[in-house]
Amino acid sequence: MMVPDRPRISLLGTSALLFEAPGAFDLPHQRRIWALAATASKWTDIREAVPGITNLMLTFETPPRQLDALIAALNDAWDTAEGLAIGGREIRLPVTYGGEIGSQLQSVADHCSLSIDDVVAIHAAPLYTVFALGSHPGYCYLGGMDPRITMPRRQTPLQRSAGGSVSIGGSQTGVSASPGPSGWHAIGHTSWTFFDPSWPTPAALVPGDTIRFVIERVIR
């Protein structure tokens, strides 16, 4: 039975565990996830605490023999977690909407019964917060997308999508940092370096940073 107000905890085989917070996809919940990550990353046997979108993956140094104790500790830590407000930087990202790379702009407009201009305006309006990094090196998941431009992920993921693609997947949006497979819909692109392994911190953005998309051009 689903108990809606409790977190869900599930195994990812023997190498990790997934904690999914109850409640909305919003900044207050994400701030509690950041706090939980900061706490859990200090536990023994935990290699990394990796925030997702209102969820947290814990990877194991070695698989814990006592799972129950770990689950109880996670639940306790969640219940007492105060939101961790991270004051990040604001980044302005010029975006070309549509065109060859953003070829799904029309499909998103059709799916959402909006015009292309509406989709672009709605997508570029918010100040997005970097909720988490993941997917591929330097990729940022952003919070703050207007639900009017939600579109489910692809039936079958694409084998290759271009680097710099600005895409929508479900109720989320993000910008790919390099070419690769994707189950999302690309509506535009940007040229910006998100990742360099030679930097002291290899990813350009961290959770808590904010992004504003600047409409550079719309190709219809």
């Binding site: 990812l12 085989g13 190498s15 993956m57 079958t156």
Partner: peptide, 18 residues
């Protein structure tokens, strides 16, 4: 099922809509 993005590890078996 449309999940919020979350961490996955090698070995995870996903079922896309097909």
């Amino acid at each position: 099922v449309e999940k919020r993005s979350h961490g996955i590890v090698p070995g995870v078996i996903q079922i896309p809509p097909n």
